[in-house]
Design a binder for these strands. Structure first.
Lengths: 154, 154
DNA sequence: CTTGACTCTGTAGCGACTACAGGGTTTCTA
DNA sequence: TAGAAACCCTGTAGTCGCTACAGAGTCAAG
């Protein structure tokens, strides 16, 4: 099959397929006489594997490492667990800071309901007050928002 | 104050300060005879404002727009609400997909507890099975993980 | 025989930084 | 007072995972 069909069957953009090939995530395909790429079943599977990992938000570098494991069935899989665990803790950390973020934003949003002139806008006042080092509604509660959490967001 | 002090007092990297200046988020500072940047209180406040917005994960383009509001106190603030609401819905959407992601990853992780040879690793089996279009533990439950959610992650 | 869809290579852009390279200046210490 | 460390300057390139071209060639249908 050609690149367009491969792309469609995996739900991947054509450009992305070529991009993966450049990063060696996909082995170089055979070429037709006119230079068009030709793919087989193995490419289809490998690409689906990559997309599945990406759906789990794994970095492509990790996917590369996983593909190495796939290619070496006799090796020990302990490092796979390490890799997945790292991914899980990344996601957990991000989730924690996102939850804090949501609280901060909704607290901020409450500062202004109806349209005012900008100079009276509670939201802008809150944001500006931070510039003066004052307390602000969105970053007030230390129980919910630790400095670490904020640092994580940056 | 010089750039190093400004950076330290706001918790921003020196390079980031120069970067913000290039993007016109900070007005060009005065220069000493030797070319060193000199900052005053207004820069400090503006930079703190920017960082506060960034801590709320707002894109710099939105921060620019907010700064325009700050500079025009008489304008109407309705657009500020629109901007904050958009940010809130972005965060909510991301949060939703992150929660699904966490479930998927922990389901995946359960497939392998102790070290095996790679060919017997449950995790890798799960990931490979996706390549065959089969059901997999991590992306099984349609009640928790909609195609939309997965698409969001990509 | 033309139109449109597909393919090719190569490069540049996104966002928000971060990390140099290769210089000059200031400040601290011995 | 010399030299080292720490600061500052400009400019460019790298990060991540794509995405979007530009400019060209190829192919199938009407």
């Amino acid at each position: 099959m050609r690149i367009g069909e491969l792309a469609e069957r995996t739900g991947v953009d054509v450009e992305t397929v070529r991009y993966y090939e450049k990063l060696l995530l996909l082995p170089p395909p055979a070429r037709e006489a006119n230079g068009y790429r030709t793919y087989g079943k193995t490419h289809l599977e490998r690409l689906a594997f990559v997309r599945h990992c990406r759906a789990l938000d794994m970095p492509l570098a990790d996917v590369t490492r996983l593909l190495n494991f796939v290619d070496q069935p006799a090796s020990d899989c302990a490092d796979i667990n390490v890799l997945v665990d790292a991914q899980i803790s990344r996601v957990k950390a991000r989730l924690k800071s996102m939850r804090a973020l949501e609280k901060q934003l909704t607290a901020l949003r409450r500062q202004c309901s109806s349209p005012h002139p900008t100079q009276d806008c509670g939201i802008l006042h809150e944001l500006v007050s931070a510039a003066h080092g004052e307390a602000c509604a969105c970053h007030a509660g230390h129980s919910t928002i630790s400095p670490d959490t904020v640092a994580e967001l940056l």
